[in-house]
Amino acid sequence: MLSQKETLLSVNNVSVLYGERVGCQNVSFDLWPGEVLGIVGESGSGKSTLLNSISARIQPTSGSVTYNTRVDGQRDLYTEMNEPERRLLMRTDLAYVHQNPRDGLRMNVSAGANIGERLMAIGERHYGNIRNNAEQWLDKIEIDQNRLDDLPTTFSGGMQQRLQIARNLVTRPRLVFMDEPTGGLDVSVQARLLDLLRGLVRDLGLSVVIVTHDLAVARLLSHRLMVMQNGQVVESGLTDQVLDDPQHPYSQLLVSSILQT
């Protein structure tokens, strides 16, 4: 499953500067189909900025982000695509899961409409089909099917987050970006969500870039790990290697700071 020949996402020397302030600097990595890359670091380390720039949301100050599109092969997201193409990509092949589910959902329409929106956006015009599809997704994310017509405001935080994931995955994207998807959730709710994510990654062959400050989440979900500090990537490698044999002082600090339960 991991042995495709071509990279799915190629990030080359990406920097995002806000005037003189460094968001992130000189970040490079490749991502293959089916791989999960974790980005860890404290608040202010630049991980969210990096995530936004590689997910076609903000243009980097320098460097390039290349994505392997379904039809046209490798394309630079910013120099070889215009805004309509990027927006279409963001609605179909790419997905972005926000830390706060309210940022990624329409709170004033039903769960079914939330899941169905991307389908309707790409031209699905059969109400019955849309509804069936949405029901199946509720099953996959372990929400009772008869909540289909309820508003997300009536859902718990964990349910909202799962709904956000379903809303994103309904168009079978190949690459999912997640910004602290378990932040703000209870520990037991986190466990359920993480397990769901693991299963979906496996079953759908997704590639994922997940930003988190929680090393346990990184250990559970990601194959590879990048540690960021002050906008720089200070260490990167296989997750188990970075967590078991950290080289950089900051990585060692992070790992040694975890409380054992």
């Binding site: 927006r87 329409v109 039903s110 409409a113 929106e117 309707m120 956006a121």
Partner: peptide, 22 residues
Amino acid sequence: RKMHALQEYGLMHVKLYEDISR
């Protein structure tokens, strides 16, 4: 404005979907 410019009208059907579901 962007939605009109890019013909992104999925949301319009969301409204109709909601009607039918309700």
